[in-house]
Design a binder for these strands. Sequence first.
DNA 1: ATAAATTTGTGCGTATGTATC
DNA 2: GGATACATACGCACAAATTTA
Lengths: 367, 367
Amino acid sequence: MAERNGKAKYFNLMEALKKDIANGMIRPGDKIPSENVLSQQFGVSRHTVRKALSILEEEGLIAAQHGRGTFCIKRTRSGGSRNIAVITTYINDYIFPRLIQGIDDVMTEKGYSIILKNTYNSRKNEEKALEDIMTKDVEGLIIEPSKSEIFCRHIHQYEELDLKDIPYVFIQGTYPQLSSKPSITMDDVQGGYLITKYLLELGHRNIVGIFKIDDMQGDHRHKGYIKAFNEFGIPYDPERVVLYHTEDRRTKPCLMVKHFLDTGVPMDAIVCYNDQVALEVMQALSERGKKVPEDISITGYDNSLIAQNGPIPLTTIAHPKEQLGRMAAQLLLEKMNGVPDEESKIPRIIAPELIVRDSCRRRDGKG
Amino acid sequence: MAERNGKAKYFNLMEALKKDIANGMIRPGDKIPSENVLSQQFGVSRHTVRKALSILEEEGLIAAQHGRGTFCIKRTRSGGSRNIAVITTYINDYIFPRLIQGIDDVMTEKGYSIILKNTYNSRKNEEKALEDIMTKDVEGLIIEPSKSEIFCRHIHQYEELDLKDIPYVFIQGTYPQLSSKPSITMDDVQGGYLITKYLLELGHRNIVGIFKIDDMQGDHRHKGYIKAFNEFGIPYDPERVVLYHTEDRRTKPCLMVKHFLDTGVPMDAIVCYNDQVALEVMQALSERGKKVPEDISITGYDNSLIAQNGPIPLTTIAHPKEQLGRMAAQLLLEKMNGVPDEESKIPRIIAPELIVRDSCRRRDGKG
DNA sequence: ATAAATTTGTGCGTATGTATC
DNA sequence: GGATACATACGCACAAATTTA
């Protein structure tokens, strides 16, 4: 048979069309010349044209529409796996499901699937998860760093992502060494500030703070707490602040609160790291015969279901969780499409909102 | 052109061959009849045969060897993608996160990654998700069918999974046509029975039931409720049962309870579909000045956070969610390793457990 | 070792059906 | 309704790889 370049005719035709699409001669959405026209132009039979087109169709470059013609399909970058990875510290904890939902909503709409990993907030698991992801042909990554306050010893994995040109977006926090990378965070300093300021405005002065210290969120909420004190000209007393690690989560906050009560440390309000801790602390207070909000005001953080439906509706800080997920997904999509940072209009910081419920009470005039 | 069944000839031929492969008539490694032979046997042109074969080749079921023949491909187990897919109706609803966590724990340990999809309980999304999964090279699938009470119109996708030898496991329910497939479900009849029996044993007789009716879980809990009544020889009164659809979730239960109160329907206990509904109903009772459990006993279902931490700790039914996920994962791993059903020791039904808290009270002797 | 037969791969021409404009 | 274009289908011819006589 007639062969040029030692290749089949249909193959040559296919390659020619592919080149035109790559060149931009045929642009996404364009109609490709009809089979008969191509057959004349290239001097081959219509059957041969069809063979060539069928290959391009399999590859997803073009799509035939019965009775209308054949059209160039929207070009998918690198013909990739259409997978992205999402790594979070937890997946069943009370805010992550909605976060993941937000990411999934956006990504599903764009035809991507999510490979989900969780780290239990452990660096070792994060390393393992990243290692895993490297073998999986993903086009992008959304990651919530574990224990983001602590120096990261596996930066090489992120460097590898850069090398492979796989974009990634941090949520909730970044690593100090990677602070220039795109990230979406909630303004937890502002949140900590807002809720502490609210208590100060209610007349409270002996405000105990309870913060988790091994992630950025806790650190920021703590900073906001301090900021409010400074603004009111009240000295910050480290003795009244409980800082705990993930491992002590279940015990330390309650123990310390009981300790404060038992040793007579003045305390008329407590700012808690989140709603969960607030609930546990309330339990501890109740065990010591203290009532909320009559004796002690208490605040949560996250506006979780617990805050709404708990024994006492909690004054807390709301932050849009699905939206955080959606924004992270949109930002990642921008990166995947090569949009430079300067052109991005997606905000990187989400503002928190104070939700006032029934767990705080104005303090009487006397000191 | 000549068409039978309204289908194209090549399509019929393709389906016939597919069936033979699925049946085992054509086994992996076997040579399938030559194009000319098939063309004679089926009374179609060789071109048509080739069209049919090309589809099977695309799908990876057969492979042609120039000058030798066309062979049924050996299904490559192992060495695979190390990915499995998980399709659930929701991911942020209050039991799914823990379910997914359970699956992930087991799968991560075995070195698998999870591709997560959710359907929002829509058949259309389920179809789309399955289609997506087909292109992703997964080694297995765990799926919670959407609206499992309704007949499934996209069985062909499950047949395709069978053909490709990709094992799948149903959770929470199956489709009527696929009831022989491996599945893990919670015994919701037993759960509904246990909690209703508990109320009957406390001496309650006027027990209102509130159940969601458009999924299998609600239907089963309702059945258990009826079973308990029968066992106690108490007539089942449909007038005292509220059946609602997902869409009316937020309004109907509360409205009906208020209606019962306002019209003087005797009611000294309420069995609720889940904790969420129980909480809302308690709100409604409180608005009418009724106290729980003094005036009316109430039960939930799911043993969610709300049940533990709500205004009144709820008597409810616990079902191990992570364990459901873990068992589904283990069952899938068995399937992926070719363990036949007879040898499996993983239980397929998870027993519910009654959790007694403070929302129910023994009824006084008098009627 | 060679030739013949078999089987897939490529290519051409034609005809009819059907959806869209 | 008519024109256009894709979808399906048939028959034929020759090339290339492999098996078999």
